[in-house]
Design a protein around this nucleic acid. Sequence first.
DNA 1: CGGTATCCAGCCCGATACTG
DNA 2: CAGTATCGGGCTGGATACCG
Lengths: 123, 123
Amino acid sequence: MTLRAMTDEAGDIEMILGTRAVVEMLSGKWNVDILYLLATGTRRYSEVLYEVGEISKKTLTQTLRALERDGLVVRREIPGVVARVEYSLTPLGWSITEPLMAMYEWAARHLSAAGRYGERLAA
Amino acid sequence: MTLRAMTDEAGDIEMILGTRAVVEMLSGKWNVDILYLLATGTRRYSEVLYEVGEISKKTLTQTLRALERDGLVVRREIPGVVARVEYSLTPLGWSITEPLMAMYEWAARHLSAAGRYGERLAA
DNA sequence: CGGTATCCAGCCCGATACTG
DNA sequence: CAGTATCGGGCTGGATACCG
């Protein structure tokens, strides 16, 4: 669907609000990383901490809580002697991989050729 | 294309970097608004200032410069007695409306049903 | 193990005032 | 008209230490 066809049937304001909402859900230094990680399977807190890299525990908790509030991630406590928590994508979380793919494909077609996102983030 | 098919042929790191790059280009309070505005046609600085709403001149200039550095927007000075500058989308700027549409469509399908976009969702 | 509590630096963004 | 200069508040994210 094109932008033009879109603007004909949806108010520009709704488009702005909707798009902004998605961008905000994905904004933050680690949101995309965590979403992609959980898309490869459920992880425990400490696994996310280790696999994401240099993220601090505070920031990890903050980010996971935000993703949870947005309905993209579920937090599940596993009963036991020691604390054990698992995080995984919700159906909504899975569905957002579609726009995520659209973004990646766009970047691959328009940015990677120019080597334009190599310096954006050193992970 | 699915996430799974994607991860098979592209490194996870490239996916993260590419997606992050797009999110960063769109992050910021006014980026999406300005992109959608310019998608409806070229505007002068003062027109953008008025049509976007409560944005300050400083922030508008900052945002336009950032979009320009990212190659999404062109700035053109029109010779004349008084200063006059026009902003419009580049081909790259036009092309990014595709992921933008993907985000809006996702929001329309998954978020608008739950009410306002500002609200959080239940899992 | 899976978090909180605290402190703190940096940046994003706005308000206001001034300029070629 | 299209900015820049300056000031400052608020939020984000990291460092470190502590806890059930």
